[in-house]
Design a protein around this nucleic acid. Structure first.
Length: 479
RNA sequence: GGCGCCAUCGUCUAGUGGCCUAGGACGUCGCCCUCUCACGGCGAAGAUCGAGGGUUCGAAUCCCUCUGGCGCUACCA
């Protein structure tokens, strides 16, 4: 009786918690609750290079904020732990040994340089970039001696040369991939950590996951996963690929074009119930013409079979409308409490106060000086942000890069200052010019409390949002 | 380029062979309410159902082709 429903979400701790993670978490939660199953949270922290230490806790906090609680996970435990992949490496090593022994995988000693060159050539001659199986063709003795000599290597999946893999997507039906279109994927990296593909299959099996509900972007790698299940002799779970949330231009939702951090939505004053409701609207699923609903209502009425497969545009305007509905529906007391805990939160005020106190003459000036900390959108006129000898196009170009470097920056004083100064230098702008531009974008004014301190208090998510909005606004103005 | 997925108003969607001269919601516009704004109420504009072929008495709904969009194409997930 391996029929009980178990589902999971598997976020990677690589940055701010993502709105797409919340979307998939919501769907998994509903699925599990509807079927009396278990909802598991597993942290996929196998990429050392992108790992962000603070990220895991932020994911927990954000999902709890939304009320999307899990039954098993790193923080709550459970019978199938540990729930962090970095703590399960022994499992992956054993799995790799099994694959190697069974001839389903092989060691690859190719260097990054060789792989890059190989791909360059393939693309130049209009061939699909794919591993050329150089090491798969090594004879056993050669491979063994390289291994014995301690040569750095990866382990790759030995995809069958002929035939095809067919799997069923519960929403789309059967999908077939010809094996000559499936790459010999790296399963174990040279640092000893597994890639997503291996870890995911091993863990989903070990954790007895019955239904894999994940984003559509995974469809192309599903044949590799199916091949792995079969190589291990394991039962293949059911797959439900959900449509991808989109930007207004229909591309996969991205931080460049949309606020995607759940931290942003919380700080910008969206109610968790409204955001959950809105996510529930994405892709249909609820009965006709039901627009406003709670999590329990969604649990009662949501049908996975109804999901429409076209990728839904994440429309901030409609989210705001829905959020307004929720806000206006609050009792006056609850509303005030909410304002106090989000907008006028004590910790937030405590961080702002010293910046204002230095330059204040009467208490009534407090809001005049601090307004931008409490506003949703600030707009400075070009006279403020456009340096005298610079053109608008070059300012906007710099603005675009500003967004990228701030995104990558540690949200800490020294790092922020260095980031901005480096950006100025790179563009042969004076620090003064750049700081005024950023000040205008962040505060909407030419005079404000110290810029870096203000950005630290405002927070990364909202600061980035202001830069993004600035760019969008200016782009729209020029059209 | 290759492979895969998808395709109804600008956006989210209803619609699963006749009830569709395609319904609702956001947004937009107008009117009402009103000291203003917002809320709320009412209304309008907005989709030859991506295109072209079939199947059928009948197609947004089924089939084929094309086109378009998106995703994947990493020792990232």
């Amino acid at each position: 009786m391996a029929s009980s429903v178990r589902v999971r979400i598997a976020p990677s701790p690589t940055g701010d918690p993502h709105v797409g993670t919340a979307y998939i978490a919501l769907l998994n939660l509903i699925f599990a609750r509807q079927r009396g199953g278990k909802f598991v949270l597993r942290i996929e922290d196998t990429d050392r290079t992108r790992f962000v230490a603070s990220s895991e806790q932020m994911i927990f906090d954000a999902l709890h904020w939304l009320g999307l609680d899990w039954d098993e996970g790193p923080d709550v435990g459970g019978p199938f732990g540990p729930y962090r992949q970095s703590e399960r490496t022994a499992l992956y090593s054993a799995a790799v040994e099994r694959l190697l022994a069974g001839g389903h995988a092989y060691r690859c000693f190719c260097t990054t340089e060789r792989l890059d060159e190989m791909r360059r050539l393939q693309i130049a001659s209009k061939l699909p970039p794919r591993y050329d199986r150089h090491c798969r063709n090594l004879d056993v003795a050669q491979s063994a001696s390289l291994h014995a000599a301690g040569t750095a290597h990866t382990v790759r999946l030995a995809v069958p040369v002929d035939g095809a893999t067919t799997f069923r997507d519960e929403l789309r039906g059967e999908i077939t991939f010809d094996h000559n279109n499936v790459d010999d994927q790296v399963l174990l990296k040279s640092d000893g950590f597994p890639t997503y593909h291996l870890a995911n299959v091993v863990d989903d099996h070990e954790m007895q996951i019955s239904d894999v509900i994940r984003a559509e972007e995974w469809i192309s790698s599903t044949p590799k996963h199916v091949l792995l299940y079969k190589a291990f002799g394991w039962e293949v779970p059911r797959f439900w690929h959900m449509p991808l949330l989109r930007n207004t231009d229909k591309s996969k939702i991205s931080k460049r074009k949309n606020p995607v951090s759940l931290i942003y939505y919380r700080q910008a004053g969206f109610l968790p119930a409204a955001l959950v409701n809105f996510l529930g609207l994405m892709g249909g699923g609820m009965p006709a013409d039901v627009e406003k609903f709670t999590l329990p209502e969604m649990q009662a009425g949501f049908q996975f079979e109804r999901i429409s497969l076209g990728g839904p545009v994440f429309d901030l305007e409609k989210l705001k409308w829905l959020n307004g509905l929720y806000l206006r529906g609050l009792s006056p007391d609850t509303f005030l409490d909410t304002v106090r805990t989000v907008v006028l939160d004590d910790a937030y005020l405590r961080a702002i106060a010293p910046l204002i106190q230095e330059r204040i003459e009467t208490l009534a000036q407090f809001m005049n000086l601090a307004d931008f900390f409490f506003m949703d959108e600030v707009v400075a006129p070009p006279e403020v942000y456009l340096p005298k000898k610079r053109t608008l196009p070059e300012t906007l170009k710099l603005g675009g890069e500003l967004l990228a470097v701030l995104e990558a920056a540690d949200w800490e004083h020294a790092a922020l200052e260095k980031t901005l100064r480096d950006l100025a230098t790179a563009h042969t702008w004076s620090a003064k010019e750049l700081f005024m531009l950023v000040r205008a974008i962040i505060t909407g004014k030419s005079a404000s409390p110290p810029l870096l301190e203000s950005m630290l208090v405002l927070g990364k998510a909202r600061s980035l949002d202001r830069v993004r909005r600035f760019l969008e606004r200016e782009k729209a103005r020029r059209e």
